[in-house]
Design a protein around this nucleic acid. Structure first.
Lengths: 327, 327
DNA sequence: CTGAAAGCGCTAACAA
DNA sequence: TTGTTAGCGCTTTCAG
């Protein structure tokens, strides 16, 4: 593998000139540029990022922390991040924490060790203390889930309002007994969505019943199925479910279908996220759509700005209620 | 940020000694080791991978090429790759090509530019010529989809046999008119699965009808729905569908459910891949399960071996027919 | 067992 | 406009 020296020698110029050509600096005479380009072609030379990165003390890698790669919620966000990253000549290292602090630490180490220039954290279960202390020396952006501790910039949606609108939609449809499938309240979004749920109920003078609120530790299909079983056994069974994730809702739908409960007639169902699959169920799922791709591009832009020492502002994006067959 | 020099100075040793401690070389006296470790702690020192990587001319990054991040088929494979990679102190750069040659090239450039030490390609649409020429200088492994051109090592399953067994299962159930939802025949796996389909039909003296074979360009839900519409309009409508991907099958199921066609009574359905969703549909989907996680670990091990100059052998893993409600 | 020094491949300040 | 040179942070050879 040729290096910059050999190119310089073959072209009859100095390495500095080769470097200039490589970086598109227009101080170079067209004639010398041509010589250099010729030499590059002849030697099949490819500049090594290893040398360049050391010299520039940067890795041009952005770390993206997600709890699980199999949650479709993150797909579009990741695409947005990646597109923006590539635009700015960054690459993304997608890191799945499995909500495992040990694994998380492996990834944090990458930025400590300069293998990454910054982090976009989308992991609700992230250790916020570590994140905080890391953010003192490194660039970090929170995406979707966030904490206001530590002043780490974030991009998100108004979770409370989204939940409020979802539940209000159910109420307008005539539902009075509405279950909430929520995730663990240690997560901010869970607390916020619960707030929205309660706000809607209260606004219409409906009772807030503890037994209608089911908490699941994960946001998988199975958790949705389990939760559904629980509310089906209630003496005063709800007529509608608001699930804080489409995965949960789809698990619920599966259980309802199996139990022969008609959706939406006997049980209305509304999810959250608008993942692809939510439109492939039978019936299709009413859900809250977040501008995921945009969230990704915004997060990436914020991070890149932060890396470059610019000031970045927190961003709250708009959501949308998507009414489909399940309500 | 402290560097190795400052640590050496504070510890009163040379940088060489610090490096030895860092790399766990046991030539160092316990006493000096202690001094060094103290200094490291005091300075909060983290060794920079930038320097180390340049020196070792390696990046300890593995490139993983997939066509689309939203195809769940890849999840478990990626998990397998990642787990093995981490074991060997590698990180993976997950690269989504969108079957776009331009994007593909951006990623290939990363290994040319030494940002990555090797590639695991899972993209059926990959430019095999580029891959071939790249494999002359770089370590590459093909995973799942492969080409025998260029002698690039691969890990895969026996696609023909898998398809054969799927279709045989349908035939044993009494089906005589079986549709095939295949992807584009430019892909090897598509050709192989078609072979298996035909082999089973022939073995039972069933006619092979062109009109029962639908080709889709992508493996998404929508393609499955479209394909289903086509065969529903056939005068001699099939009674069973074998789809070469669960996504296709789920799209088909959606269409069948909407059209009020009972699955499996009026139309049996079998997919391929055993993605998570396949167990969440109503009815649940019969499918072919591939050992995806293992495929990932094997691919990663092969690649790491290749990077280290060892010889690697092609591997064919076992598959399994998972009979569920849709047949 | 430890240290001095070279060098991985590149960029940029400075000089010419 | 181009060249010389130092140095990014680390590992490793060679000497001691």
């Amino acid at each position: 593998m040729a290096n910059i020296n050999e190119v310089a020698k073959l072209a009859g110029v100095s390495v500095a000139t080769v470097s200039r050509v490589l970086n598109g600096q227009d101080v170079v005479t067209p004639k010398t540029r041509l010589k250099v380009e010729d030499a590059i072609k002849k030697l099949n030379y490819e500049p090594s990022m290893l040398g360049r990165n050391l010299r520039n003390s940067e890795s041009r890698v952005l770390l993206v922390l997600i709890p699980s790669i199999s949650n479709p919620f993150y797909f579009e966000i990741i695409k947005g991040i990646e597109a923006t990253a590539l635009d700015y000549n960054y690459n993304i290292l997608l890191c799945e924490t499995d909500s495992n602090p040990e694994r998380e630490n492996i990834y944090f180490d990458l930025v400590r060790k300069k293998m990454a220039d910054g982090i976009i954290s989308m992991d609700p279960a992230v250790n916020i203390d570590t994140l905080k202390s890391l953010s003192e020396k490194h660039s970090i952006i929170q995406c979707s889930e966030y904490s206001t501790e530590g002043n780490i910039p974030y991009v998100t949606i108004d979770n409370e309002d989204a939940a409020y609108r979802a539940v209000k939609h159910l109420i307008k449809l005539g539902h009075q007994k509405i279950a909430l499938f929520n995730s663990n309240e240690k997560y901010l979004y869970a607390r916020q969505r619960k707030e929205g749920y309660i706000k809607a109920l209260k606004e219409f003078n409906l009772p807030v019943k503890e037994e209608y609120m089911i908490y699941t530790d994960q946001l998988g299909f199975d958790n949705g199925s389990q939760a559904t079983k629980k509310i089906m056994n209630l003496k005063d069974r709800p007529t509608a479910i608001f699930a804080v994730s489409d995965l949960l809702a789809i698990g619920a739908l599966k259980e309802l279908n199996s139990a022969g409960v008609n959706v939406p007639d006997e049980m209305a169902l509304i999810g959250f996220d608008n993942i692809d699959f939510s439109n492939m169920t039978h019936p299709t799922l009413t859900t809250i759509a977040q501008p995921m791709y945009q969230m990704g591009t915004v997060a990436a832009s914020m991070l890149i700005n932060k890396i470059n020492g610019k000031h970045v502002e927190n961003t709250v994006l708009n959501h949308e209620l998507l009414i489909r067959e399940s309500t």
